[in-house]
């Protein structure tokens, strides 16, 4: 009989409507920004630079090797090497980035910079509320804005950061033994 199909479709709609009050499965939205879903551990957005200790300028892990700048597919990283060497967090004299800019209006969050970095210096951030007044200046992040502490890294990626710390300290131990 004509119309049965439509009626059974309506029954589905009705079940979904009523069900949305009782089943979590049928209503998966949340009232952002009052309610927020927790971001998964692996969530990635834009890169930031990790620093150890308290001082952001002194503790930066980055040694300005420029690998991320070279590998970045959309070429959104700009680095200028320092002329002098500064002791890094382990006390070894290293070059440091005089300029480290990431244009996050160009960045496509691919994580390749993180994967290629041999010094665990650049990691992915989870900040996503990034609306700005200006189009160009405000989305070009300088070294000072990019530098974030290891504690912050532990807060946003707890499992990954613990692994990284273990690897770094193991590498430091191995080096000490060699010396």
């Amino acid at each position: 009989m004509i119309g049965i199909g439509i009626l059974s479709g309506m029954a589905v709609t009705l079940r979904n409507f009523v069900g949305s009050y009782f089943e979590k499965d049928r209503l998966i939205t949340v009232q952002y920004p009052e309610e927020r879903e927790t971001l998964p551990e692996n969530y990635r957005n834009f890169p930031f630079l990790v620093y150890d200790t308290e001082d952001a300028a002194a503790g930066l892990r980055c040694v300005a090797c420029k690998i991320c700048e070279k590998e970045c597919p959309p070429q959104c990283i700009y680095i200028v090497k320092s002329d002098d060497k500064k002791p890094d967090y382990m006390g070894k004299p290293q070059l440091y980035p005089k300029v480290f800019d990431i244009d996050i209006s160009v960045c496509m969050s691919c994580q390749i910079c993180v994967e290629v970095c041999p010094f665990e210096a650049i990691k992915m951030d989870k900040v996503f509320e990034l609306s700005r007044r200006e189009r160009f200046d405000a989305l070009l992040l300088r070294k000072e804005e990019l530098a974030k502490s290891n504690t912050y890294y532990h807060k946003i990626h707890p499992v990954e950061a613990a692994e990284v710390d273990a690897n770094l300290s193991a590498a430091a131990e191995a080096k000490k033994k060699k010396v």
């Binding site: 004509i2 119309g3 049965i4 199909g5 439509i6 059974s8 479709g9 029954a11 589905v12 709609t13 079940r15 979904n16």
Partner: peptide, 14 residues
């Protein structure tokens, strides 16, 4: 199953 019921026998879709 629900989605199929919504569309497969629906006279308008047919």
């Amino acid at each position: 199953d629900e989605f199929e019921r919504l569309l497969v026998s629906n006279e308008i879709v047919v």
